[in-house]
Design a protein around this nucleic acid. Structure first.
Length: 935
RNA sequence: GCGGGGGUACCCAAGCGGUCAACGGGGCAGGACUUAAGAUCCUGUGUGCGUAAGCCUUCGUGGGUUCGAUUCCCAUCCCCCGCACCA
């Protein structure tokens, strides 16, 4: 087949057949193992996904071209609830979900019936995952990704489960997994915990739960033997120092309940509704007595830490369905309390502990304009005051040992203190207050309002473990981060990570090996799977039973067992590819996935197998806006490929922005990239057919330029500065080509060697185009399989480049003057003069690093002292690379005389001795910068 | 508030102590080619001045360090992202 004319699709087929992207051990060759996170198979890929993958593929191709044995694998993530949630909603005939997936499927299918049939099949989560995996593979191939597909798998497959189980058993033996309490959203009618995917509007709304601190305030009881507490709920435990009274709603039902706390029975007074919530949130609660709130009014309770008796007052604004229905009144710092007391006509400002936080904004000031406790503005001023106090406020002398502490710090400290005195507990409420003070509560997709339950036996990865943290820090020290600016992100992430709940009640993936009722959470099963890639295809030949702990211990850690010989090649394969040389992904993953990956590598693998480099890129937006379904500006990857061609999409993703800035996908710019590729094709084709011949000067210049750009290109690629690399080898070299063509017209012969090398390098970015061109220029095999790329350093000719540069600048200069002169008369002739020999000698002195004093010692310079000082001021040692003789300069211009005359439309007179110099312009001439006179 | 990143010409965007009036792309204007359009190529594109190698003012704003700052330091204003159990 004539490859020079075939379509992208046919090239993909040829690549597949030739297996050039399948990597096998080659001991003589250096290897390069690069991965990009596997996609989640719940929908079609869009152009935003393609950025990381394309940069990953470009890197893979780059190293392949440099002669590395590259492994670039891919798999699919199906762990977690989203796929299940979609299936369920499709099964329930959810219109929105159906429409969305019909749209996705219609990207790939034309026939309406077929589309419906496929979406119908999505009722089965497995079918959904498989379908999208299939189309993603097609998309990746269409994009020309050089992936070794033999290693693909999905995270629900048995052999992968075995691998993850092995990993978690390892953590268990290292005591890195702990068990504890964890609050979750729970749907009472579905009878299971829910995640974002099950919450109505969960993907758009920010549904969160509110964590209330329960503060136990001792209250007298008829029974002197029991410990009885009024349980006030607050978001601000540090304000206990400012409590002047308590609020209870007289109209609502309250209860006295027996709560068993750490084996001790206590009596709590809370609203009846609160008692039910407490039960659900893991408290052992028995109702002893039930009464109206008014029964509590007038009684006194003791505030903790300060041990002050305060009175319970009535307040109708207290909601018995929020937390406990008992509220601390802190008028000095809570506008609501201030206004409520003012409404009651109670004077409280005399209380010695009225003010307990010093900050700029004062409660008395913010409430000035507030009419009464139902005023809507109260919410605004509360937020304003709280924000100021929290971030800028300091605890004052009323706060005992906490005096002088920042409020933000004191909040934690006071809570800890109360906890240690057994005077603090927590309760969770559905929803969090938004900016307007409205509580947005989570509702299950089934329509039921969610409640909060506290799970007692949730499993956590204990990232707070000091030993583990230190290992993660150590790994970070040794790993390369590109661009380096993101390193602090990792430092912070490692520092802040603590217990991470790593199990879920539901979802696809791997069962938690220590407790089979749990599933491993989706971020937690994807931390060291890069190691799995190296051997995934070999494991297919084994039975699942064989993949036990011994097996993985041997393959990954080298622990031998009887019969391990059989798996020697698997161990060898792993060791050949590991450690991973590079992981490429978006910066959004720094705070979780990537940092988890560091932790897990550190815990499982020996130091010599830790990953070597993480390369990162920013996100992508479209025409200045974030891509989102609601804006309808999501561009499916397949559509982009069809519209612009995969090569254009690839090159544009590489060139349109630096990796560390957001890439704005603008159609206008994409089209410009496309036409640049067309230009490239035309150029390479125009080269065809010329045999090698004696190089002319301009050929040497072009070869020099090419090699210089190539050298810079290699440097930039090694630093993952892909945009800069493209600019050098494509855009800048293109400008050189244009110049070359102008200079050598009409004899448009470009050295064939350059076009070959150029096609090779460009195949990294635009592989389809280059594959065709490779065929066109008569090379066999695939350019994508080429494994050599060398800079011909010998060919880089600094002097030739400088001389050509002189010419370019000369033209510029002449044009400038022509513009000026044209206003007065029509120029016809240009005289060119060259710098006198003494200037050349002076340059050579400067180049040697001589100073003014050294130079002035010489009589021949002293004569021109004024000019010498001037020149030395302007000219720096490092700027002087080459000092030609007058003859060389003259020769260069002479050789280009015809060209100059044509370009400038002037007669050119080369006056080496400046015999005719009416305005004495020769004095302006410098080495490599001839002077000109125009008339 | 904390943490991170950033503010560069009409727009996007590189530069991160001297070669910078500032790479590259887009746009715009003029020219070549063409019956025309398109494509392609060339030229120009901060301002004001100059028939001669320059001068003036400019890289958010205001200071400072330096022989020299778009680049370093300080202050200040503005924008974006993260602050978690969500993939």
């Amino acid at each position: 087949m004539e490859i020079s004319t075939v379509s992208d699709e046919e090239i993909i087929k040829l690549w597949d057949e030739s297996k050039i992207f399948e990597s096998e051990i080659v001991h003589k060759k250096p290897k390069y193992f690069i991965t990009v996170p596997y996609p989640y198979t719940s929908g079609a890929l869009h152009i935003g996904h393609a950025r990381s993958y394309t940069l990953g593929d470009v890197t893979a191709r780059y190293y392949r071209l440099k002669g590395f044995n590259v492994l670039f694998p891919m798999a699919f993530h199906i762990t977690g609830t989203p796929i299940l949630a979609i299936s369920k909603r499709i099964a329930q005939d959810d219109k929105k979900m159906l429409a969305m997936h019909k749209e996705y499927v219609s990207i790939y299918e034309e026939d309406e019936n077929k589309i419906n049939e496929i979406v119908e099949s999505f009722k089965n989560p497995e079918a959904l995952a498989n379908y999208y995996a299939k189309v993603i593979i097609a998309d990746f191939k269409r994009m020309g990704y050089s992936i070794d597909w033999r290693r693909k798998f999905n995270t629900g497959e048995k052999f992968y489960n075995k691998f993850v189980e092995w990993q978690y058993k390892k953590f268990a033996t290292q005591n890195l997994i702990i068990k504890g309490k964890h609050a979750v959203y729970f749907c009472p009618s579905c009878n299971n915990p829910v995640t974002t995917d099950d919450i109505k509007g969960g993907d758009e709304l920010d549904i969160k739960m509110t964590e209330y601190y329960l503060i136990k305030e001792k209250i007298a009881s008829e029974n002197a033997h029991e410990n009885c507490y009024l349980i006030a709920a607050t978001l601000r435990p540090e304000t206990v120092f400012g409590i002047t009274n308590l609020w209870v709603n007289p109209e609502k039902i309250y209860v006295k309940v027996n709560v068993r706390n750490a084996g001790i029975d206590e009596m709590w007074l809370v609203s009846k509704k609160a008692s039910e919530k407490l039960k659900k949130q893991g408290f052992e609660v028995n109702i002893i007595d039930e009464f109206k709130g008014e029964n509590l009014i007038g009684k006194k309770a003791m505030t903790p830490l300060t041990n002050k008796e305060v009175e319970i007052l009535k307040a109708n604004f207290v909601d018995d369905d929020v937390a406990t229905g008992v509220v601390n009144s802190v008028p000095g710092h809570a506008p609501y309390d201030y206004v409520a007391l003012r409404d009651l006509g109670i004077n409280f400002a005399q209380e010695p502990n009225f003010r307990m936080i010093d900050s700029k904004i004062k409660v008395e000031e913010v409430v000035k304009g507030i009419k009464n406790q139902t005023d809507e503005k109260l919410e605004d001023v509360t937020q304003e005051l709280y924000k100021d106090e929290f971030y800028n406020g300091l605890m004052n002398e009323n706060c005992g040992e906490f005096k002088g502490m920042k409020v933000a710090v004191a909040k934690e400290k006071v809570a800890e203190r109360l906890k240690s005195l057994n005077l603090l507990s927590k309760i969770y409420e559905n929803g969090i207050k938004d900016k307007d003070g409205d509580v947005i509560k989570g509702t299950c997709r089934c329509g039921t309002e969610l409640e909060i339950r506290v799970l007692e036996d949730q499993w956590f990865l204990n990232y707070a473990d000091d030993g583990w943290k230190n290992l993660a820090k150590k790994i970070l020290k040794s790993i390369k981060i590109d661009p380096e600016i993101y390193r602090t992100g990792f430092v912070n992430a490692i520092e802040w990570l603590h217990e991470w709940p790593c199990t879920r009640n539901r979802g696809l993936g791997t069962k938690f090996p220590l407790d089979n009722k749990w599933m491993i959470e989706s971020l937690s099963d994807s931390t060291i799977y890069m190691a799995f890639y190296t051997i995934a295809h070999l494991l297919r030949n084994l039975t699942v039973e064989e993949l036990d702990n011994k097996f993985f211990d041997f393959v990954f850690l080298g622990k031998k067992f009887d019969g391990c010989e059989k798996y020697k090649n698997i161990r060898e394969t792993f060791l050949y590819y590991y450690p991973m040389d590079e992981r490429r992904t978006g910066i959004a993953h720094i705070s979780n996935h990537l940092t988890f990956s560091l932790f897990h590598h550190a815990a499982i693998f020996p130091e010599n197998l830790w990953p070597k480099k993480i390369s990162l890129n920013e996100m992508l937006i479209s025409e200045g806006k974030k891509m989102s379904k609601s804006l309808g500006n999501v561009i499916p990857l397949k559509n982009a490929c069809e519209k612009f061609g995969a090569d254009t999409v690839r090159l544009h993703l590489c060139y349109a922005a630096d990796t560390s800035s957001t890439l704005d996908w603008k159609e206008k710019d994409v089209l410009a990239t496309k036409s640049k590729i067309d230009e490239f094709v035309n150029f390479i084709k125009s080269v065809d057919g010329y045999a090698s011949y004696e190089y002319r000067d301009m050929d040497k210049w072009l070869i020099s330029k090419f090699n210089r750009h190539l050298e810079e290109f290699l440097n930039l690629m090694d630093k993952s500065e892909i945009r800069g690399a493209v600019q050098k080898i494509f855009y800048e070299f293109f400008n050189d080509i244009k110049w070359y063509l102008r200079r050598t017209e009409p004899n448009k012969k470009v050295p064939k060697e350059i076009s070959e090398e150029w096609v090779k390098v460009m195949s990294i970015f635009i592989p389809f185009t280059c594959e065709r061109l490779w065929g066109y220029i008569g090379k066999g095999n695939f350019v994508s399989a080429e494994g050599s790329l060398k800079v011909d350093k010998e060919a880089i000719n600094e002097n030739a480049e400088s001389m050509e540069n002189m010419l370019i600048e000369l033209i510029d200069n002449v044009r400038n003057f022509v513009k000026l002169i044209e206003k007065h008369k029509k120029p016809t002739k240009v005289f060119i003069y060259f710098a006198e020999d003494w200037k050349r000698e002076l340059f050579s002195e400067i180049k040697k690093g001589k100073g003014i004093k050294d130079v002035m010692a010489d009589e021949k310079f002293k004569r021109h002292s004024k000019d010498v000082i001037n020149m030395m001021k302007k000219t720096h040692q490092q700027d002087i690379k080459f000092i030609p003789t007058i003859e060389e300069e003259g020769g260069k211009i002479e050789g280009a005389k015809e060209f100059l005359e044509k370009e400038l439309n002037l007669k050119v007179e080369i006056d080496v001795n400046a015999d005719y110099d009416p305005k004495e312009t020769r004095k302006f001439a410098m080495p490599l910068k001839p002077a000109i006179y125009i008339e």
